[in-house]
Amino acid sequence: MRRKPNPLLRIALLVSGVLLLIAAPLASPLPGPGGTLLAAAGIILILRNSAWARHRFVRIKARWPRVGDLIDRILVRASAKRRRQRAKSVAAN
């Protein structure tokens, strides 16, 4: 079972995730995939440290499954990997 981090650490990680999301469009004109990586890192930090954001993310995934699947693939979420593996094994049987 994972321990909850210190509340100040959670707030600091949440704020850094928001800052990364703000910096992503600013870095996108630069050569390379910098903006995409910053956006993905920001989303990861926000989803890991905010119950409200996780709840909203689940609702978005339920309403628009294709968008949710795309975000899962970008973030390489373990739950998405398990769902794809389960779907493959069911389809194979």
Rank of each mutant, 00 (worst) to 15 (best):
M1Y: 11
M1E: 12
M1G: 06
R2K: 07
R2S: 10
R2N: 05
K4A: 13
K4E: 13
P5L: 09
P5E: 03
P7S: 06
P7L: 08
L8C: 12
L8Q: 14
L8W: 10
L9C: 09
I11P: 00
I11Y: 03
A12R: 06
L13N: 04
L13C: 02
S16E: 07
S16Y: 06
G17T: 02
V18W: 01
L19E: 04
L20H: 08
L20W: 14
I22V: 05
A23S: 11
A23T: 09
A24P: 10
L26P: 04
L26D: 10
A27D: 08
S28P: 04
P29L: 07
P29N: 14
L30G: 15
P31H: 04
P31E: 12
G32A: 09
G32C: 11
G32Y: 06
P33K: 06
G35Q: 04
G35A: 05
T36V: 15
L37H: 05
L38V: 05
L38P: 02
L38A: 02
A39Y: 04
A39H: 05
A40C: 08
A41K: 09
A41V: 13
G42C: 15
I43R: 01
I44C: 01
I44P: 06
L45K: 02
I46T: 06
I46K: 03
I46Q: 02
L47M: 10
R48K: 12
N49G: 01
S50K: 00
S50W: 00
A51G: 00
W52G: 00
W52R: 00
A53V: 03
A53C: 05
A53P: 02
R54G: 02
R54V: 07
R54E: 09
H55N: 11
R56H: 09
F57M: 07
F57T: 14
F57V: 08
R59S: 06
R59Y: 13
R63L: 08
R63S: 11
W64Q: 03
W64E: 12
W64Y: 08
P65E: 07
P65A: 01
R66E: 12
V67N: 14
G68N: 11
G68P: 06
G68W: 00
L70K: 14
R73W: 14
R73A: 08
I74L: 14
I74Y: 13
V76Q: 12
V76R: 12
V76N: 15
V76S: 14
A80N: 01
A80C: 09
R82A: 05
R83Q: 04
R83C: 00
R86V: 04
K88Y: 09
S89Y: 07
S89N: 07
V90P: 01
V90D: 07
V90G: 02
A91M: 10
A91L: 12
A92Y: 03
N93Q: 08
